[in-house]
Design a protein around this nucleic acid. Sequence first.
DNA 1: TCTGTCACG
DNA 2: ACGTACGTGACAGAC
Length: 340
Amino acid sequence: MRSCYRLGLSRKRRGKTGFSTDARVLQAIREEHEIVPKIERWRELSTLIKTYLDVLPEMVDGASRIHTTFLQAVAQTGRLSSTNPNMQNVPVRTALGREIRGCFEAEPGSILISADYSQIELRVLAQAAGEDALMEIFKRGEDVHTATASRVFGVEEADIDPGMRSKAKMINYGIVYGLSDYGLADRLNIPREEAKEFIDTYLERFPRVAEFMAATIEQAKEQGYVKTIWGRRRQIPELQARNYQVRTLGERLAVNTVIQGTAADIIKLAMVHTHAALERSGLRTKLLLTIHDELLFEGPPEEIGPARELIEREMVAVWEPREPPMAVDIGHGANWLEAK
DNA sequence: TCTGTCACG
DNA sequence: ACGTACGTGACAGAC
């Protein structure tokens, strides 16, 4: 990018056609020129406007409702995907994003109930790896990112500040995805050596996680596939590639698919069981959406109490008697934002 | 049609 | 040394 060069901005990663200017790069060079934060703001607003505000109102039907299509055989991990429109990427992270989410309202006279599994992938990891240290954190009901920060940084939990917790969160999820020291360094904007220390310390504190990853990759190489806890398979032909880059991708896919795929099994079972239990109970509350670790329901306000109780019970029961237990966060409100 | 970017989990 | 976090779908611009 000629203009970037002229402004003397740092160049981080490059793609096939030039230097990247994606959100992570802009965040890292935010202080280098006053134009950078302005571009960040423009990117945020233009994305939300063109992808959601310009398009979704056109898709509302005569009953003031929007209908998505769920695809059951696209995502290679066993997740559902959602298209035309995608209701699984409705904004929520920024202030304007939350305003957009708040536009999705229950039918007048009804309410929405949102129920999401708390840290489902890390709980699955704890079980799959048999890592007691991780299991104990959940069993005690601790905040997993704070607890991880304490173990990785060697600081009392009471002294963990939001920045340390945020780094630990990055490490926790990065581990599931097979992140490298380079990748963590790039995301945390820290030296590579420091990132390597964090990862090494994490794997020392949670040694069964390291063993689980190695064993999963080894087994996948022998058999050609991995299996979720419920037994659904994904072939990983990338592991046979001669190309290093493809092969290491295969190693990350092997580990991630067991975790993400098991979480997908769980939410699908939860859909079946909550639906069946609602029908059996005679309640009129209906399942509307599934968003990977969240189920969204709509129903009469007088059913809030029993519906919430039934939904949480069924969602938790899907995973029993495994450890650590699943935890479900439930809320309700007139719109999707309030319900979260 | 490909690439980069960005929304979500 | 290698290139460097998984899974999606939608949009805009270049070709």
